[in-house]
Computed example of a mutant assay.
Amino acid sequence: MIYLDHCATTPVSRQVYAAMAPYLTEEYGNPSSKYYGQAVRAREAVECAREQVAGLIHAKPEEIVFTCGATESNNTIIKGIADYRKYYERRGDHLITSRVEHHAVLNTCRFLNGEIYSNDDDTFTLDQSHPTVDRGFSVTFLDVNAYAQVETGALEAAIRPGTTLATILWGNNEIGSLNDIVSLGAAAQKHGVFFHSDATQVLGKLPIDVRSLPVDALSFSAHKLNGPKGVGALYVRTDEFGLMPPFSSLMHGGEQENGIRGGTLCVHNIVGFGKAAELAASHLENRLERMRALDREIRGLLQSNKNIELLGDPEHHIPGIFSIVVGDTFFNNEQFLKQIGDEIAASAGSACSAGEPSHVLQAIGRGRQTGQVLRLSLGPDSKASDVEALLARLFPR
């Protein structure tokens, strides 16, 4: 199997699996329990993992909150800041995001904007024909440029006296373009707006140093950097006194994670995330150099094919993510992916929007080409020959 879908998920590395295994068998203690050895060792393992994740982004360990993944992290900080600043601090009710966010951000903001409602069968739907529900918030969804990037001027123009939070994706999970998070974050913070970014696709692939980054919060998932599924983290910047800004909890329960996220910690997954972060930090420079070289080689290969158009920013992008438009208007990406599925794993876009037209392509004026687009996303062990094999199936001689 040739695997070209690392944006969807990555294989758990052997070192990560080995680190996790003891906490599924003999070291099964609850880290919130007290006094006896298994509980103490479980708690120590969690705190070690917290240090490892913090180390990857140069944060303080106390700035890391473990969650079940970036989706929960996004929901936690967006709903938490919005609720607290409106109802407790009376600051305002206006939020800003973009039209190309991951659904974990986009649908959270749609919910607060009153666009997503519950049907009689308790399923959540988005129906533009249905009247919105007033949940007390208004959201501005920013347009983007041809590379699916948010312009700093557009963000700044959308800020108004009641704006409390802006959330802008760092690296686009469909076409790989990078937003200028430094410029965007600085613009938000200049106006006292809390700035959050979903950095899921960037973590472990590009350097992140929160000490010099104008962000208040970042979201991550472990399974994008050879860690396990079902665990992620939320970074929230602390002040000079070591305190996080107050925000309402999404999950109420016990006092785990300093009362921010109730529920028994999933120790083995957290340990796996920590090990994955440690490995990513130790290999980051070498892997980035290799991925950039591989990216240049494959971009040249794709650009030389007159039947392919490459989307996204040619300079400011995550190395190893390629969104291509196949020139044949009769090409059906879903049918093609099924045909090659026993040999090659690739995708038609985000794994979280399967079966739906790509909102990213729609936002950049390419909605009619949704069925012609393939996303190829590479990992540390990928080779140019992997893409060549897909192209051979795509354009047989």
Rank of each mutant, 00 (worst) to 15 (best):
N332Q: 12
G367M: 06
A354E: 11
H283K: 08
I298K: 07
E257I: 01
H316F: 05
I321A: 05
S249Q: 12
T264Y: 00
Q369S: 06
I364A: 09
C266Q: 08
S304W: 02
Q303N: 13
P245M: 01
Q339L: 05
H252F: 04
G312Y: 02
A346H: 12
R287Y: 00
I324L: 06
K338V: 09
M291H: 03
L302M: 15
I364P: 14
Q372G: 09
A348S: 10
K275N: 05
L284T: 10
A276N: 14
L337A: 14
M291G: 07
H252L: 09
G300W: 01
L310H: 14
G272V: 03
I340S: 10
R290I: 00
G365K: 13
F247C: 08
A276I: 10
K306M: 12
R287T: 05
G355C: 05
K306E: 15
I318Y: 00
L294P: 05
E315R: 09
E257A: 09
S350R: 08
L376I: 12
T264P: 04
V373A: 04
N305G: 04
I344A: 07
N333T: 10
G254V: 02
E309T: 09
T264V: 10
L361A: 15
V373R: 00
V267K: 14
G254M: 04
L250H: 06
I340G: 14
L301S: 09
L311S: 08
A281D: 15
L376S: 08
E356T: 13
T264I: 03
D295E: 06
Q303M: 09
L361P: 09
G355E: 07
A363N: 09
A276M: 08
I364C: 10
A348E: 02
H283P: 08
V326E: 04
F331M: 04
N333V: 06
Q369W: 01
F322N: 11
E356L: 11
A363W: 00
L279T: 11
G253T: 08
A351N: 13
E297W: 00
G365E: 11
Q372P: 11
L376Y: 02
A281G: 10
I260G: 13
Q339T: 10
A281C: 15
E334A: 11
G341Q: 12
T329A: 13
I340E: 07
L265Y: 01
N258H: 13
L250M: 05
E356D: 10
L294I: 04
S282H: 12
P245E: 05
V325I: 07
P314A: 12
R299F: 00
G274I: 00
F322D: 15
R296A: 15
S350A: 10
V271P: 10
L337C: 04
E257P: 07
S347A: 05
V325F: 01
K306F: 03
N269D: 10
L288W: 00
E297G: 14
E315D: 15
G300V: 03
I270E: 12
C352E: 15
N305C: 10
N258G: 11
C266E: 06
Q362W: 01
R261C: 06
R287G: 07
A346G: 11
Q335K: 04
I270K: 14
H316P: 06
M291L: 03
G312K: 07
I318D: 03
E289S: 08
A351M: 14
A346K: 09
L279Y: 03
Q335S: 13
E343Y: 01
